Simulated assay, not measured.
Amino acid sequence: MKSNHILYVILFLVLISCTREENPKEQFLKWVQKGKITDKIQCKTDANITYCVFIPTDYDVSKTYPAIYAFDPHGSGRIPVNLMKNIADSLDYIIIGSNNSRNGLRQEEINGIVNTLFIDTQTKLAIDPSRIYMVGFSGGARVACMIAQAKPGIKGVIACSAGFQPTKKTLGFQYIGIAGTQDMNYLEMRQLNLLMDSVGIQNQLIVFNGKHRWPNESTVGEAIEMLTIDAARASNRIEDKNLATKFAKENLSRIEQLIDSKSTDSLALALDIAKRTLQTVDGLIPTDELKLTIEQLAKNQVHQLGLT
């Protein structure tokens, strides 16, 4: 009897061990380091499809995390992952950069890459299915928008330096455009912003001083904070309201610096920042100061136009 009892215990422990080893999310931690970038993970069903990944330092497979899928026009997953890793670590995001999606591929090739990427990452990573985002630059931005329009449940898109053609009056996802003032696609991004405003599609445009390139870390970080604050509307957590307060305070400080410079371009930029900050935090924190700032900047703009 005693030997049988020992045998049952051994079998039980073996079964537990096998069950644990079969958990792909726990297995995945053997191949990556928390808080570090892993450049190349092969998809299980197609080893030719790979991705770069960053998981936050506090990552725990028993929880779920928001995930950002990033698309570079030249198929470099590391560029956007490296760009976003610091803000991702501070806000507990998973970042996944495709190493295969690139300019020049046929639509069906892109679809195959994206479908394989989604299946593999959502099997191996503890992703919150209600908070999946797309980010892309140039041709990668068009891919990000295409995915968001085709796949229900995408929470938001950050599209850098390239737009898209809205197919509905409501997008179903949050849209943030980013463009440099000297970007060859700046006019396209500005016109898309005005078009969506005119038909009542909620969107935001962040403009930075630069050419046709991935924006810098702080600009992308601002966009990710905006996505995070928007998601906070469904919760009532103190830390979410604290992020909204921090976001508004930092942007008010930027606005003050722009106002002090007193140039026409700086005042126009200050008004843009004030408007998108209000749109981002309204309903979460008091916004009287922001509204007053917008009113004063708008009056100054009208006054300057009257003088020209």
Rank of each mutant, 00 (worst) to 15 (best):
W31L: 13
E295D: 13
L258H: 02
V14C: 06
G283Q: 11
G210K: 10
C145Q: 05
G153C: 06
S253H: 14
A148C: 14
M184Q: 13
E225R: 00
K168I: 12
I55E: 03
I49E: 00
G35Q: 00
R102N: 09
R233L: 05
E188S: 13
I95M: 12
L307S: 15
S263R: 13
K34R: 14
R78L: 11
D120P: 04
P152K: 13
T264K: 10
L227P: 04
F164V: 07
I41L: 08
G163L: 07
F137N: 04
S98A: 10
A159Y: 08
E26D: 13
Q257W: 07
Q42V: 13
Y65H: 02
F137K: 00
L91D: 05
K155W: 03
H5G: 06
I79C: 09
L278W: 12
G210F: 13
W31N: 11
G136R: 05
K249T: 14
E250C: 05
Q42K: 15
P215V: 01
M1Q: 07
F173M: 11
I285S: 03
K2C: 01
G140W: 00
F247E: 01
I127T: 02
Q279R: 15
N100V: 07
Y175P: 00
D183H: 10
A268Y: 11
L125W: 06
G77Q: 05
D60P: 09
L292C: 06
K25P: 03
D230S: 08
P215N: 07
R237H: 14
I10R: 09
V14I: 15
R131H: 14
D58P: 04
L297D: 00
L307Q: 15
S76E: 14
A47K: 15
Y133I: 04
I206Y: 06
N209Y: 10
A274T: 09
I79S: 11
K275Q: 15
F137A: 04
L284N: 04
M226I: 08
Q149H: 07
H74T: 14
R233Y: 12
R213I: 10
F118A: 08
A298E: 15
R131K: 15
I94R: 02
S218L: 10
F208W: 11
T167P: 02
I79V: 15
A232D: 09
E256C: 03
P166C: 10
W214A: 04
Q204G: 03
K169G: 09
A232V: 08
F173C: 08
Q107T: 13
V61P: 02
A231W: 01
Q27K: 15
A141S: 14
N300P: 02
I49C: 04
I238S: 03
G200L: 08
S76M: 12
L227V: 08
I87L: 11
F137I: 08
I255M: 03
G139N: 11
K36L: 05
I273D: 00
D72T: 15
G283W: 11
V220K: 02
A67C: 10
T264A: 10
M189P: 05
I229Q: 00
E250T: 13
G172W: 14
T123Q: 14
K124Y: 11
K168L: 12
K169A: 03
I96F: 07
N193Y: 15
I132F: 01
D92G: 03
T245F: 05
S266Q: 07
F164H: 01
P66N: 06
Q182L: 08
A274V: 09
I158F: 04
